[in-house]
């Protein structure tokens, strides 16, 4: 069984039978199952990584299909959360992979136990706030993580080994403003793939314990203009780094609880999260929306409501997405009307 499925990978000398066994015992956390995440999950599943924990807050939409290779029209029609759709697809590809799916907005408290429970974290996010949060948690718990990002025809990736390499915070000392997103610039799927091939290759090296083979650079490329820069980072580790320096403060574990609202990348959508997890049943949410004269549909994993120009989605944990706006105050007002 193992020999048939993984035969070509076992023939690859740095992996071999021993390496394949290591991969099958390994566990990886993938934060974000959008473009980067879905490519990475597909590759890791085919490679035979034993266990994956997948975190994603969103559901599949038609505009995702151009580059998010795990998903299909059927997922769009069923409005499946990406983590749920990803699990279903992985089980079709390789049923021996164990998947835990988490439909939620990643924050310090829900991500920390997941970080502690895996061998490695792979970045599939679309925003720097979550990346800096992963960076803090990974360094705190001494777990390797692999940054990846893409936009247009550009991409970047960095492998962080706590205690050995510089961390994201050493290189980028504050959260960059989100001036460029897939909203305004678009993206081609080869840029996604190019980031992920580097991420997954580095991930496999780490899972096999072959850290000598790691790249040790910050990699940047622009596929359209045939440019690539692989920057050496051996001198970039900062003694005074707030995350991996001598006196760490882990800033993203401190302030995180204050950010309960956000604008989603490339979605013209705001997200409102309740201060604590709400314990409304699906029936109660449907009833409440109906009373407020929304046209309601129950898609099992989420509920949609439509009224005039308002299109909203509510997840079982009380998280709400309001489409067609970047106005967080408007989102908060609607959220309060529904839940208070």
């Amino acid at each position: 069984m193992m020999h048939t499925r993984y035969s070509r990978q076992i023939l690859f000398a740095p992996i071999g039978e021993a390496g394949q066994k290591k991969l099958m015992r390994a566990s990886v956390l993938i934060v974000g199952a959008g473009a980067l995440g879905s490519w990475a999950i597909d590759m890791l599943a085919r490679a035979g990584v034993g266990k994956m924990k997948i975190v994603d807050r969103d559901y599949v939409e038609e505009s995702n299909l151009q580059r998010q290779q795990l998903y299909s029209m059927k997922d769009v029609e069923q409005k499946l959360p990406k983590a749920v759709a990803a699990k279903a697809r992985v089980l079709q590809i390789n049923p021996s992979v164990e998947i835990e799916e988490y439909v939620m907005h990643a924050d310090a408290s829900n991500l920390e136990p997941l970080v502690q429970s895996v061998d490695l974290i792979l970045d599939g996010t679309d925003n720097f706030d979550t990346r800096f949060l992963i960076n803090d948690l990974a360094v705190l718990h001494k777990k390797p993580w692999i940054f990846g990002a893409c936009l247009g025809s550009y991409g970047s990736t960095l492998t962080v080994i706590p205690g050995v390499t510089p961390c994201l915070q050493c290189l980028i000392r504050s959260v960059p403003m989100q001036t460029m997103t897939c909203d305004s610039m678009g993206i081609i799927s080869p840029a996604v793939g190019q980031v992920v091939v580097h991420q997954v290759t580095e991930a496999i090296k780490i899972l096999l314990g072959q850290t000598d083979a790691l790249r040790n650079t910050y990699l940047y490329f622009d596929l359209w203009n045939h440019e690539q820069m692989s920057i050496k980072i051996s001198k970039a580790k900062m003694e005074d780094c707030v995350t991996c320096g001598t006196v760490p403060t882990y800033p993203f574990l401190q302030f995180e609880n204050q950010t309960k609202t956000s604008v989603l990348c490339g979605r013209d959508t705001v997200q409102i999260r309740p201060p604590q997890a709400l314990s409304f049943s699906t029936e109660e949410i449907v009833k409440r929306l109906t009373e407020l004269s929304y046209h309601v549909s129950d898609y099992r994993h989420l509920i949609t409501g439509e009224k005039d120009n308002e299109k909203l989605v509510i997840f079982p944990d009380g998280r709400m997405l309001l489409h067609g706006t970047k106005d967080i105050e408007k989102g908060k007002a609607i959220f309060q009307k529904i839940f208070l």
Partner: peptide, 10 residues
Amino acid sequence: VAFIPPVSGG
């Protein structure tokens, strides 16, 4: 000297 802006999407 190379100036490389951080990429944010994904």
